[in-house]
């Protein structure tokens, strides 16, 4: 029974990872691509690792999978934030059809 749940988690994780990669190819600019890659890939990978934990239980590899989930959730958004900020400061433009850019307006005032 628990193995079936593990398989389901791994399948869902693979699906989300796939959507994350698809977003990386299809979306127009750096910021939108970061959206797809951070959200989908973080949860997808966490889901795969959780499926692995369900398979292995509280053994050496299972506990390491849980630790990896914690580190992923803590670090993935931080790196995305760093990339987005760095891109904006070094002058990467938003997509043409973007609605507004409050950050650009405030940077001019500073």
């Amino acid at each position: 029974m628990i193995e079936i749940i593990g398989y389901i988690f791994i399948a869902v994780g693979l699906m989300f990872d796939f959507f994350g990669c698809l977003g990386l190819v299809r979306l127009p600019d750096v910021y939108n691509r970061l959206q797809a890659s951070t959200k989908c890939v973080t949860l997808g990978t966490c889901s795969i690792l959780f499926g692995l934990f369900l398979f292995k239980g509280f053994t050496a590899s299972g506990i390491k999978a849980l630790l990896c989930i914690v580190f992923l959730i803590l670090t993935a958004p931080v790196s995305a934030h760093a990339i987005a900020r760095g891109a904006h400061i070094s002058g990467v433009k938003l997509w043409d059809k973007s609605v507004c850019d409050k950050y650009e307006e405030d940077k001019k005032e500073m």
Partner: peptide, 26 residues
């Protein structure tokens, strides 16, 4: 919220017309 986010982004990425409306807000 995280799971909802994933379905939202997956929907937008998978839709043929890319229904996005991006911008930076404060």
């Amino acid at each position: 919220e995280c799971i909802k986010a994933n379905f939202d982004v997956a929907y937008r990425v998978g839709h043929p017309d890319l229904p996005i409306n991006p911008g930076i807000v404060k």
